[in-house]
Design a protein around this nucleic acid. Structure first.
Lengths: 152, 152
DNA sequence: CTGATTGCAAAACGTTTGCATAACT
DNA sequence: AGTTATGCAAACGTTTTGCAATCAG
């Protein structure tokens, strides 16, 4: 665990604490432990992976709590959630990590991250035009990565 | 059924016929009947809704065939598929219907369509830059619609 | 105290699979 | 004829639910 990661977890914990308070949600240890688990590493995880990793580390947490907590973490934007085409959600840390979208190779399954602030600006503009108050977005582009398209 | 709808179904049928031939897939009546069902109305439907509507109209089709066929129709871009946050896919006709993305109100569930060619252009630019050969994309923005955000 | 949150197990839900039959090429 | 696609039902994996026990406010 790097000092920087530690710093992000600490800040994220503060944000979560405030969010729970503002919403009148309870301040349970499980909610912080799910946050820690997700912030402990980079990458995309599904709910069950998180549950099993916590179990393997000796936690008594239940599946239901993991699912409940992930919903809250997405709500307060500490975690991003995406659907890449399989039948489950993927979750990843969002704080201290540049917002990005995903290219998904439908041949090899590789997931490539990219970020393009101009796209975000246009999205904001559209939301303004339609008086829509955006909380989060998810953009996926499906196709073939350079490796797979050159193999054809 | 309008004359225009009829025209789109006919053209879509031709496209599907060519696609099946090119891929060496078989030319089965079920594949055309799923296409017709989806093109018979505008809007988003999940796989089971399509299956049940066909059953109610006297079709002998099976769930498995509906799922198989939808995959093919998405592959040849006659149908768009999106994930709006619930745990199932939504399908909608794509031919003769302007490409669009979606704003999803997390309060009332309303889905608002919008299209912004500038965003598509930026996506293409990014794909070029990364040598990614895009087939389709899906962009959802989650938040509150004007009605729901004014009620707060 | 009181009700929100938890853990557990069972149920639900959408989707996929296995297999025998049918049908396209 | 050969082999892909179909229909059916059962299996699968993810997520949700019901309920009693626990714990935060």
């Amino acid at each position: 665990m790097t000092t920087l990661s530690r710093k992000y977890i600490n800040e994220a914990t503060e944000i979560l604490k405030l969010f729970l308070k503002n919403r009148g949600y309870r301040n349970t240890p499980e909610r912080y432990s799910v946050l820690e688990e997700l912030y402990a590493s980079e990458g995309h995880f599904n709910a069950d992976e998180i549950f099993l990793r916590m179990k393997n580390n000796g936690s008594q947490i239940s599946r239901a709590t993991v699912y409940n907590t992930l919903e809250i973490l997405v709500e307060c934007n500490l975690v991003d959630c995406h659907q890449f085409g399989q039948n489950h959600m993927h979750y990843e840390r969002a704080f201290g990590y540049k917002h990005h979208d995903h290219l998904i190779c439908t041949t090899c399954g590789k997931i490539i991250e990219f970020s393009m602030p101009e796209i975000e600006m246009l999205q904001d503009e559209m939301c303004n035009r339609l008086s829509f108050k955006a909380d989060r977005h998810s953009l996926q582009i499906f196709g073939k990565c350079s490796d797979c398209s050159s193999k054809e």
